[in-house]
Write a protein that binds this DNA or RNA. Structure first.
Length: 464
DNA sequence: TGAAATGTTGGGGCG
DNA sequence: ACGCCCCAACATTTC
């Protein structure tokens, strides 16, 4: 009887355009494995929203392919499975989290010891982090030249179709997905998620098609409007590898070619967003401290305030600034927040409240369905001004002006802050100017004061 | 992938 | 008719 091969699924929960899976399927009968690893030292455990997504994505994948589910340190679990199944080879997709290099090395060692071939493939990114370098051979620290290099190295491959898979019968017991308790119960804070999201490969493809069809044409401006459906909402699907960046890239390119220049600008803006994702991974690969420590070390000594009440108010959407509160409540209710609102809420935490960006990073990690170690860290540092190619310290969003600009009718606020739902557009973003009594808190900080305070404190750091 | 302060210009009201 | 002032509206600079 032919020895099986093991496909170790990670953040590549799809059948199509999955190089590792295609290679595995081409080489023999396949045993699909997913390991919930809460134990590898130094690894960030999946947050609550991520676990919700993972549950449904695994459910979806296991309808297409039998999966062995196991819990534990991935290298240790794999060693056991290899032994029990008498597997001949292991296939997996490379991951770029700071702790993954060590883990993948230990997995290689396990394979060597067992005399099993170990095959690692890319696909989570368009370009391997090693592949893009400056003329001097250094990693890029600034997005614009990075994106230029990435555009120049633009992929011309077509995404792979899903392979025909001969599934091996594995004599290994699998955990029950429900025993992992990935879904919240007390309280069930995720009850609003299912109406917004369809985890899994089919949901990802449908989302991509819908986006290309409806929103790509106006993406350059539409993506900035939280009151409209102008973003792709592909981030959680990309994070879990339910769709590959190559599939997204080529779909957008195809639509642009077909439209003969009708929306080249919007198309390029979307491709650039995919490259921001690449850039975050490029950074975290070369600077593995990114999730913990400021890229610009002088920020590590910054005198951040400590203010639990302020932090709670921010987390719960009770800052008294309608757009900030709308964003934080959208996040809690759906596991997602519109990108522009992410920038504004993040700026508020860091610059208005002067709280450490790591606090925001942790909260987003726990609450976002697209929580992603690289994008999350890089983006928070970008807003803080502590990162590579970061926003300048004096760029402080005025949450009221941003609201009036990007939510001009107040529809976004109305949706997420029902206390203000009956306010007319002209005043909805400035409830503190209202005449009567409102069931809505006053601002927890005065914008003018906070702005001046942040400028003074940040000027200090930036003069060093 | 800002906002506020400061500077400049030009039209209209008015003595 | 003219200069003066006020102040939008826009431009520039500063943080």
């Amino acid at each position: 009887m032919t020895q099986p091969v093991i496909m170790w699924f990670r953040q590549d929960l799809r059948l199509s355009d999955n190089a590792a899976l295609s290679a595995a399927a081409a080489s023999g009968p396949v045993i699909g494995v997913y390991i919930l690893d809460d134990e590898t030292p130094g690894a960030w455990r999946w947050g609550g929203a991520s676990r919700w997504w993972l549950h449904h994505s695994l459910e979806s994948l296991s309808r297409k392919l039998p999966l062995i589910l196991k819990k534990g340190k991935a290298d240790v679990v794999l060693a056991k499975i290899i032994k029990e199944t008498d597997a001949r080879a292991l296939y997996f997709t490379r991951d770029y989290a700071p702790w993954s290099a060590g883990l993948e090395q230990r997995v290689r060692d396990v394979c060597d010891k067992a005399g099993v071939d170990c095959h690692r493939y890319g696909g989570f990114l368009l370009h391997e982090p090693e592949a893009i370098r400056t003329g001097a051979g250094q990693p890029y620290k600034v997005f614009t030249p990075f994106s230029r290099a990435a555009f120049a190295a633009q992929p011309d491959r077509k995404p792979r179709p899903a392979p025909k898979i001969d599934c091996a019968i594995a004599k290994v017991t699998s955990d029950h997905l429900s025993d992992w308790k990935l879904l919240p119960s007390k309280p069930n804070w995720a009850k609003g998620f299912a109406s917004v999201w369809t985890p899994g490969e089919d949901g990802a493809r449908a989302r991509l098609e819908r986006f290309i069809e409806n929103a790509l044409v106006d993406y350059a401006d539409g993506r900035d409007r939280p009151d409209q459906d102008g973003t792709s909402r592909l981030s959680p699907h990309l994070h879990w590898g339910e769709i590959s960046p190559l599939q997204c890239w080529q779909a957008a390119r195809g639509a642009m070619d077909k439209a003969r220049g009708r929306f080249d600008r919007s198309g390029e803006v979307f491709l650039k967003e995919l490259l921001w994702r690449e850039f975050s991974y490029h950074l975290i690969h070369h600077w593995p401290d990114l999730p913990e420590k400021a890229f610009r070390p002088e920020f590590n000594d910054f005198p951040w305030r400590s203010d639990n009440k302020g932090l709670r108010a921010w987390q719960q959407g009770r800052t008294g600034y309608p757009l900030v509160d709308a964003g934080m409540r959208e996040l809690w209710a759906t596991g997602y927040m519109h990108n522009r609102v992410r920038m504004i809420t993040a700026s508020f935490l860091i610059k208005h409240l002067l709280l450490p960006w790591q606090e925001g990073e942790k909260w987003f990690w726990d609450t976002l369905v697209d929580a992603d170690i690289a994008n999350n860290a890089a983006s928070w540092q970008w807003v803080a001004g502590s990162g590579a190619d970061a926003a300048p310290y004096f760029r402080i969003f005025n949450p009221t002006l941003q609201a009036e600009k990007f939510d001009p009718n107040g529809d976004y606020v109305r949706k997420w802050v029902p206390e203000l739902a009956d306010r007319p557009a002209s005043v909805i973003h400035r409830p503190w100017e209202a005449e009567g009594r409102l069931d809505y808190p006053p601002p927890i900080v005065d914008h003018d004061m906070a702005r001046k305070r942040a400028l003074a404190a940040l000027k200090e750091v930036n003069s060093k």
